[in-house]
């Protein structure tokens, strides 16, 4: 197995929502190998997004420790977490989260402006097949195109890891597959470790590794000996 890109030990996360305590994560141990495409599967509220947020340095653990390679995320202060996100993490969200007042190219530049060694914004957009749509505003693009802009934005910084929260959740099957193809291609060509949250079970077939979540715990982990190409799946 390749060196782990993420290591988690005994991670718990408790949300205090006015009296009632919710255990979003209840003692998670996990190692994710570098270069892999991992899929986190599980019902709503099972803790997938919380885990992703913690891996991305967006949220803090209640207990336990988390490492990105040899950086201990749980020992970092906010300023260092910002640095970590800036240098290593590419995010992709269900609702694309593009800035509506910026064009596709400018949305990508938002990242390349602050990243340490980014690729040109145009190149990132070419990679996701949007070279011809660079100067369009989000409102002028389809959902699939917007999500591909979000992917271009995520990969433009040449991140160590891509974290995708329901990247196809708001898309139909055909455009969803286009987006998965883009992710697949990045993972294959750049060896970028990619974590995809979904509750679409069909997507697991493209992953190296599938991690099942249930009630804030990992219920099982499955390695795919044979992976399918995104074009070969449907839902």
């Amino acid at each position: 197995m390749a060196d782990p890109v993420f290591t988690m030990k005994g991670v718990t996360k408790v949300y205090d929502t006015g009296g009632a305590k919710v255990h979003a994560l209840a003692g998670v141990d996990l190692e994710l190998p570098g270069g892999e495409l991992a899929v986190l599967l599980g019902p709503s509220g099972s803790g997938k997004s919380t885990l992703l947020n913690i891996l991305g340095g967006l949220d803090h653990v209640t207990d336990g420790r988390v490492w990105f390679r040899d950086l201990e995320l749980t020992a970092m202060r906010d300023r260092e977490l910002t640095r970590y996100r800036r240098d290593h993490v590419g995010f992709i969200f269900q609702f694309y989260n593009l800035v509506p007042s910026l064009t596709a190219r400018e949305n990508v530049q938002l990242v390349t402006d602050v990243a340490r060694d980014p690729m040109p914004a145009a190149e990132a957009l070419e990679l996701v097949g949007l070279g011809h749509r660079m100067d369009h505003f989000p409102a002028e693009m389809s959902g699939g195109e917007q999500q591909r802009v979000a992917i271009a934005r995520a990969i433009a910084k040449r991140p160590g890891v891509l974290l995708c929260d329901e990247p196809t959740g708001a898309l139909d099957s055909k455009t969803g597959i286009q987006v998965l193809e883009a992710l697949h291609q990045i993972n294959r060509d750049f060896g970028t470790a990619t974590v995809v949250i979904t509750h679409n079970a069909d997507i697991q077939k493209i992953a190296h590794r599938v991690i099942y979540f249930q009630d804030g715990r990992i219920s099982r982990i499955q390695e795919n000996i044979e992976r399918l190409a995104p074009a070969d799946i449907s839902w």
Partner: peptide, 16 residues
């Protein structure tokens, strides 16, 4: 709100 979340997610600091 979500744009602010995004800016922070992609690595903009609180000060920025």
């Amino acid at each position: 709100r979500s744009e602010i979340g995004l800016l922070k997610a992609v690595g903009y600091s609180d000060a920025e």
